[in-house]
């Protein structure tokens, strides 16, 4: 399972980096989304990979912590998803505004040969 997850993160990040370096705003925003998926999976994997282990402890019982998975990375992922979602939405608005001002979707607001 580790190799599958590692390959998935690698593919997402590699595609994301390539897209972020492209000159069109739409490619950049898709690249940012892919990068943030890759990073979210990475955070998740930092709590170690466990199958069929719940993150939430039952109340008032003595428990064996080894039966549970680490809840903190899951909380971190949740926060990271919300924040990157919000900032990406904001970026989308700026992207549309830039297109409205310049009439092109080039990230510098003008084509290279102009």
């Amino acid at each position: 399972m580790e190799i599958v997850l590692a390959l998935a993160i690698g593919t997402l990040v590699a595609s994301g980096v390539w897209l972020v370096l492209r000159p069109r705003t739409f490619q950049v925003i898709v690249g940012l989304c892919l990068l943030s998926y890759g990073v979210n999976l990475f955070i998740f994997s930092m709590g170690r990979l466990r199958v069929a282990a719940p993150p939430i402890l039952p109340k008032g019982e003595t428990i064996d912590p080894s039966l549970y998975t680490d809840p903190i990375p899951q909380a971190l992922v949740l926060t990271a998803i919300v924040i990157s979602f919000a900032t990406t939405a904001l970026f989308l608005v700026v992207l549309l505004a830039a297109q409205g001002f310049t009439g092109t979707d080039h990230i510098d607001g003008k084509e290279r040969d102009q």
């Binding site: 940012l32 990068l35 979210n40 994997s45 903190i72 900032t87 904001l90």
Partner: peptide, 20 residues
């Protein structure tokens, strides 16, 4: 915005690595 969004992703990688 693009530069800071990418930097934030790096921030997350660093933080989660330290936690891991």
């Amino acid at each position: 915005i693009v530069i800071n969004l990418v930097a934030s992703l790096f921030f997350l990688i660093g933080v989660s690595l330290i936690y891991g």
